[in-house]
Amino acid sequence: MTTLQAVFDKARAEDRAALVGYLPAGFPTKDGAIAAATAMVEAGCDVIEIGLPYSDPLMDGPTIQDAVHRSLTNGTRIADVLRTVEGVAKSGAATLVMTYWNPIGRYGAERFARDLASAGGVGTITPDLTPEEAEPWLAASKGAGIDTVFLVAPSSPEERIGKVVACCTGFVYAASLMGVTGARETVNAAAEGLVKRTKSLTSLPVCVGLGVGNGDQAAEIAAYADGVIVGSAFIRRLLDAPDEKSGIAAVRDLASDLARGVRR
């Protein structure tokens, strides 16, 4: 099992940013998600976030909404999410679960943390869990030995960033823009300032996500952040492909392009 610590140590030693890729479990199919994520790792992703599909993804744009809807229609359950984590972790990437809070809360915080750790998962990213509500999850994660990643946003004042980073282990997720997930033409200028403000309050790695879709953007972010997070652009490749096989090939190409980007 590769830890987040090991990933960022290695990237730092190679004087580059880490590459983080996102895919929801069960998309395009249950096995297809494992195959696609494995291709992403082979082509250069250091960290994989496996999305836990949720019925009400209120911070996601149309691309992830579409993928998640298909995944739920495919009958994806938490057991499938854990199986996906297990499959992807074997590829050697540090594997996290990204999820809204309610599925964990309903499944049971301690049970989820334990089952995720058993599957080889190294942590979670919880976009709608605020520091004020985080205590049960922090305790459960600590008990299971997994990391807890939370988000900061361009709108976050220093005092909030302080509260959020105090909950984080592994890394801090900096949302590059005020908006939902989805690739954009340009990376928001607010991202660099946010990374700077966050780094002044923590020694943890800071990764930038939201709106990143190609190698040039990855290179731009890699100049000031410890990691680059890409999600919707991978999903878009799978959605646009005529079949799963060519979709996975397109995902591999994108991961290669991004991997070159973080090494420029």
């Binding site: 209120l58 709608d128 004020e132 988000l151 361009p154 709108s155 976050s156 949302a175 005020m178």
Partner: peptide, 20 residues
């Protein structure tokens, strides 16, 4: 102060919305 009625309520939202 956390917006709780007993154990109900509170805030489970993206951090981006907290300042608003």
């Amino acid at each position: 102060i956390y917006g709780k009625f007993g154990r109900f309520g509170g805030r489970y939202v993206p951090e981006a919305l907290i300042p608003a």
